[in-house]
């Protein structure tokens, strides 16, 4: 399952060069709306998933299937927190998942979107 097509990316970098780059790294805030960066592909694996960013050419490992589910649902959920809850992350683990999403936001694997 590919998360991105060439045309998506062309559009994205075209827009990004305009004013406020929505795909520039921001600190993760669970109360805001997020999405997988349009230049990132996800490859599900038994341990979770591999994520590859074609722009930064960086590879990340999502080390659980639940985290994969969270990342995949970000675009459809109003906030990062909602995505975690919808994927069934137990309350006690929400902080862990917030940290994981923080790391992904810092490496630009996920980015904020206009809610």
């Amino acid at each position: 399952m590919r998360a991105v097509t060439t045309s998506d990316v062309v559009t994205d970098s075209g827009e990004a060069s305009m004013v406020d780059d929505p795909t520039a790294p921001h600190g993760y805030d669970p109360a805001r709306a997020w999405m997988l960066h349009p230049q990132v592909s996800l490859r599900p694996e038994s341990f979770g998933a591999l994520a590859y960013h074609f722009g930064t050419r960086r590879l990340s490992f999502l080390k659980s299937r639940t985290l994969l589910a969270v990342v995949e649902s970000l675009a459809d959920q109003p906030t990062g927190l909602d995505a975690c809850l919808a994927a069934g992350v137990p309350e006690a683990e929400l902080a862990n998942y917030a940290q994981a999403l923080s790391a992904l936001a810092d490496s630009n694997m996920i980015c904020e979107r206009v809610a």
């Binding site: 694996e45 038994s46 341990f47 979770g48 930064t56 050419r57 960086r58 590879l59 990340s60 490992f61 999502l62 080390k63 659980s64 639940t66 985290l67 683990e93 862990n96 998942y97 940290q99 994981a100 790391a103 992904l104 490496s107 694997m109």
Partner: peptide
């Protein structure tokens, strides 16, 4: 031959399963 590796830390990892072992 793999470059630009980032292991995103602080992630929930099933006990006893290191990524290296998986790989």
């Amino acid at each position: 031959t793999i470059d630009t590796m980032t292991t995103t830390d602080h992630q929930p990892v099933p006990a006893g399963l290191r990524l290296v072992d998986r790989f």
